[in-house]
């Protein structure tokens, strides 16, 4: 009898512990073209076989918040279930003429710009709903961009755990040290979402991050 009670007690504790870590809302934030969707796709494909959204060289490809429910990440025997939320890139300016360089038609460019402005607003509105956030930065770019600082500052103010990903480490111009110097109080994982390089360290860090909730 005593053994049964003890067993039930531990099962309940274990269940509650597991339950509290279920469907953790993980947001992907960052400036346009940093590789948010590429990384979210890589994770979703690894664990569900499906992608979350399309990627493109043209900035603001993601113009709506995209979701993938119940993505169970299974890493080294540990399992956690996430709701993945891929957000449009946050920018302070959007000019339709920038899209013309990619041989888009004027009307198409204007439409894309209009949708992109709405996407930025939507991204910001979603900030409050996240449990953890992965800030994806392009490691070939200057990290002292005010958009990066604003996003991270807002997450800190909301006490949302943050992991910074220095993406595109496969590129020659990549410089993770510059990102580490810019954000010394954060965990930074360098990876290539395109080639799936260093995903192990990313999953390890995500598990650590989820424990902070």
């Amino acid at each position: 009898m005593a053994i049964k009670i003890m067993k039930n007690f531990f099962t309940r504790i274990f269940f509650n512990l597991f339950k509290s870590k279920k469907n953790i809302k993980m947001g992907f934030y960052g400036p346009p073209n940093a590789g948010k969707t590429s990384l979210a796709n890589r994770i979703c494909k690894d664990f569900t076989g499906e992608e979350i959204g399309s990627v493109s060289k043209i900035p603001h490809e993601t113009r709506n918040v995209q979701f993938k429910e119940e993505v169970e990440i299974d890493y080294k025997g540990k399992k956690m279930t996430f709701k993945m939320i891929d957000t449009p890139g946050i920018a302070t300016k959007i000019d339709y003429e920038d899209f013309l360089k990619y041989k888009m038609k004027k009307s198409e460019s204007k439409k894309r710009a209009k949708e992109a402005t709405q996407g930025v607003i939507e991204s910001i509105k979603w900030l409050d709903d996240m449990d953890v956030v992965v800030v994806v930065l392009d490691s070939t770019e200057n990290p002292y961009n005010q958009v990066n600082i604003t996003i991270i500052g807002n997450l800190a103010a909301r006490k949302i755990p943050v992991l910074i990903v220095a993406n595109k480490i496969d590129m020659k111009k990549s410089d993770i040290k510059r990102i580490e110097a810019a954000f010394p109080e954060y965990d930074i994982v360098g990876l290539s979402a395109k080639y799936g390089t260093n995903l192990e360290e990313f999953y390890e860090s995500i598990f650590k991050l989820a424990k902070k909730i």
Binding site: I90, A91, T92, K93, I94, D95, A113, K114, T117, Q118, V120, I121, I124, K125, L127, Q146, V147, T150, G153, N154, A156, A157
Partner: peptide, 23 residues
């Protein structure tokens, strides 16, 4: 920080409504 994001949101709304404003 929340004012900075609010500034970005209002800027985006204005791009759509104010002629020649690009952010």
């Amino acid at each position: 920080p929340e004012e900075e994001t609010r500034l970005i949101e209002d800027t985006m709304a204005m791009i759509r409504h104010v002629k020649n404003f690009k952010g």
